[in-house]
């Protein structure tokens, strides 16, 4: 069974016909070729496939594509490009929070969702907000540093 869905992807309208059992992860990566989000566990445990759904960080491997009909989906592409980086992206670079980079898109989006709601999180709040995103390389310390640095920059403090 297929269904037509209409949603906003990174600010632009998308209309596409999709299988009812297709996950959002597959729709985005394989049908729409948005490759910043990653497929890792495909069972909701790692956060590599994180996207923003109406501003909330969610795992696209656990969502069916048909569930986003009428909603707003944002991926890392919506934040900034190499010539115009978002402060969160700059902060991840500044403190060395990127090693292999595979968790990075999901981490940055989870950070964005947190900071949009809570511009001045404590380290423990940041820990909790990112607890669904695994990173096997960094040991998380520099990622938490990046979240707090980005928060500071976004509040306009230096």
């Amino acid at each position: 069974m297929k269904t037509w869905i209409h949603f906003t992807l990174n600010g632009s309208p998308v209309s596409i016909e999709t299988d009812n059992d297709r996950t959002l992860l597959k729709l985005l990566r394989e049908d729409l070729h948005i490759t910043s989000l990653k497929n890792s566990c495909n069972v909701g445990e790692c956060g590599a496939c994180t996207i923003l759904l109406d501003g909330e960080a969610v795992r696209s491997c656990l969502l069916l594509a048909v569930m986003v009909d009428g909603k707003r989906v944002d991926t890392l592409e919506s934040l900034g490009s190499p010539v115009n980086m978002h402060p969160i992206q700059k902060a991840y670079l500044e403190v060395g929070a990127v090693q292999c980079g595979f968790c990075t898109p999901g981490m940055i989006l989870a950070t964005k969702a947190l900071l949009d709601k809570n511009p001045n999180p404590t380290r423990e709040e940041a820990r909790l907000a990112l607890s669904g995103n695994l990173c096997r390389c960094t040991g998380y310390k520099k990622i938490l540093d990046a979240v707090l640095l980005a928060a500071k920059w976004m509040r306009g403090e230096d």
Partner: peptide, 22 residues
């Protein structure tokens, strides 16, 4: 404390891992 060579591509989602090759 030099930033990572591939860092900008990584934080903007532009690194093309093997699974991203279609």
């Amino acid at each position: 404390r030099l930033q990572k060579y591939e860092g900008i591509a990584a934080v903007t989602g532009r690194l093309q891992y093997v699974d991203d090759i279609m």
